[in-house]
Design a protein around this nucleic acid. Structure first.
Lengths: 371, 371
DNA sequence: CTGAAAGCGCTTACAG
DNA sequence: CTGAAAGCGCTTACAG
């Protein structure tokens, strides 16, 4: 009752420009000039003010400063088009939207540009539009290697900071990368098979998409997958096969798979290296094939449905909303708050199953209401 | 080059009090009075202003309003003491700290009160201190059922909104609950055993702690665990046994386990229903018992270490930092922003393994630096 | 090179 | 019941 014992988290003893000015015997205008380094200040006074600033650990009041400056900060975002609300790329976009709403009151405005996933030229065209609009910062998914490099070169030339989202290109002087470590996620997929299948099981790895290079998630995931089994010691190795499918829209899609499976003498497990795993789920259901362990990526609606139905066993996910949100936040921290930011931001590698599916944000319907 | 095609996410066309005032032919003071409902306004003018407010969808500028009002908002937080930096309860606390730092500039100040996990009286004492300090909102872990109820009754009497964190008590007029759905997390643990052990395996469930009731995570997890196997059809059931250990500090701890395992004729899997799984890991290492599938909860340092060493196979986690952060944010949203908030907030149920361990925030060391 | 003044959108006494 | 004024901490021309 008497011995008050508690901790106050973060006390505020705000130092204002005015306090600095008084201590230095100058006007607040002069202090402001040195804080923002906009010259025209006597070297001596400047030094004196700088010292006081340091001593008193002055932190500007962000509220006041953004309120006073009607300045607005423009960021540009370059992402793939989304054909429907269930598409994967809608998720990072939602994260971007969230961040946009939060930072709006600080004068941040975000322009979204979208390119076609089948058309590198559209990427380049949008990149040019972005350059013309001279944004203060850029978030991009470096989807096409060549075009991304060209874009990033221009950004560097103009000293515009940029953040890679989803995929990374190294050595390009980026501000930050935010996405999944695909190699590790491949390792994890392998482990899940290893734990849930007998040692001599046959596993088929399926890639969807064309022109896969080593920058892509699929190839990195495959590398991680093989790596897990290669470094596993003591036990028999599983039998592993890889298979590439250009597009699931090919009418002969099912027959191709039939043939492949026959060729390798049946399968116990299938690993799809991207979010298209629902295509294989469809195949298994149609062909009435049961007891095949099926693992893929990303919590898009169709994958969730096949998971609920018990066809997809595990989905490995990467928090795409968080990626979008964090990319914008990183730009804000660097440009407006002048904070140090992290160069590499790997998002968590989540294992989603039927049992925890509903606890991943994406599918949480709002449940406002009474107690 | 020419057809600019982009979307601006969130445009701001700020309506100010001044705009409302002009449209209503009154002064901004009057508008302010109706906005804050502090009476003394002619009924007719009030109606008129209300209508304009609605029409123009007026949103107050949070920056300006917090800057102008030197008002400070005090929240109180009641959590268990943390004996060392690796303790579980340090994690929600870090989330609280994060939120405190972010909301500081809005005048939010947070007082932290901590009780002993072995002493219900200390909980009650701290609760009284909180009542005396008359905070605007409270976050609490309802650790002791009786004492929590008493506290919550007083809060309700004073109309102070409160948020439960970690555990929930239903029907107490809470503002919100933030934590894990333990029943589901138990189901998930069961599934992981089911996938990775043969159908007739023997599994031992171990609870640490005393006086476990149905409100606790452990019992709920156990219920979910049994439920999974009970509802599983078609295959043989695993053999399941439960075992309660009051404290791992008991010198006869290892012998107790020896005896139990002998009694049930050996085990293939052990499930520990809380973060103490490292105790069992120690046991297995000391006794040199291998090939036992070991699953537990929460990413505390010791658990992570035994996971890296390959002794713990899976950890089921609940994002404790997020819980702390969100609890404070919820109070802020309700009290300052007057937003509608969610009554139940279940955090994700994460499956952590050796392969994705490093991608869970808690153990990400900072990697500031160059590209 | 430096100071004084107006203003950002809101809140808070104060006068009438 | 209502308006006018000062002030929150900062920014931005402007005058000297």
């Amino acid at each position: 009752m008497s011995t008050l014992k508690y901790t106050v988290i973060k006390t505020t003893k705000r130092i204002r420009i005015k306090d600095i000015a008084e201590k230095a015997n100058v006007s607040i205008g002069t202090v402001d000039r040195v804080i923002h380094n906009r010259g025209e200040v006597n070297a001596e006074t400047k030094a004196k003010i700088l010292k006081i600033l340091e001593e008193l650990d002055y932190r500007p009041n962000l509220l006041a400063s953004t309120l006073a400056s009607k300045k607005t900060h423009e960021f540009a975002v370059l992402l793939p088009e989304v054909s429907n609300p269930d598409a994967y790329w809608n998720k990072p976009l939602n994260g971007v939207r969230e961040a946009a709403a939060e930072l709006q009151q600080y004068g941040v405005s975000i322009k979204l540009h979208q390119f076609s996933q089948n058309d590198p030229a559209s990427f380049a065209a949008k990149a040019n539009l972005i350059m013309e609009s001279k944004p203060e910062g850029v978030v991009l998914a470096p989807f096409f290697f060549r075009e991304s490099n060209e874009f990033v070169e221009k950004l560097n030339a103009q000293q515009i900071p940029f953040v890679f989202i989803d995929s990374n290109i190294s050595g390009r002087n980026k501000l930050s990368f935010i996405g999944q470590n695909s190699f590790q996620s491949g390792m994890l997929a392998a482990k899940l098979f290893d734990y849930s299948l007998p040692p001599d099981a046959t596993i088929l790895i399926i890639h969807f998409g064309k022109e896969l290079d080593n920058l892509n998630h699929p190839k990195q995931r495959e590398r991680g997958f093989y790596n897990y089994f290669e470094t596993k010691t003591g036990e028999a190795f599983e039998k592993l096969y890889s298979f590439e499918i250009e597009t699931a829209n090919d009418p002969r899609f099912f027959e191709m798979i039939d043939k492949k499976i026959e060729e390798i003498g049946g399968v116990s497990g299938i690993f799809v290296t991207n979010s298209q795993v629902h295509r294989i789920a469809e195949y298994l259901v149609t062909r009435n094939i049961q007891h095949v362990r099926l693992i893929g990526h990303d919590l898009v609606r169709k994958n969730a449905e096949f998971m609920r139905a018990g066809v997809v066993d595990f989905l490995i996910c990467q928090r795409p909303e968080e990626q979008g949100h964090q990319a914008i936040q990183t730009l804000f921290d660097h440009i407006i708050l002048k904070k140090q930011v992290r160069t590499d931001n790997y998002t968590s590698i989540d294992i989603v199953t039927k049992e925890n599916l509903d606890y991943y944000k994406e599918f949480n319907l709002s449940n406002y209401g009474t107690n």
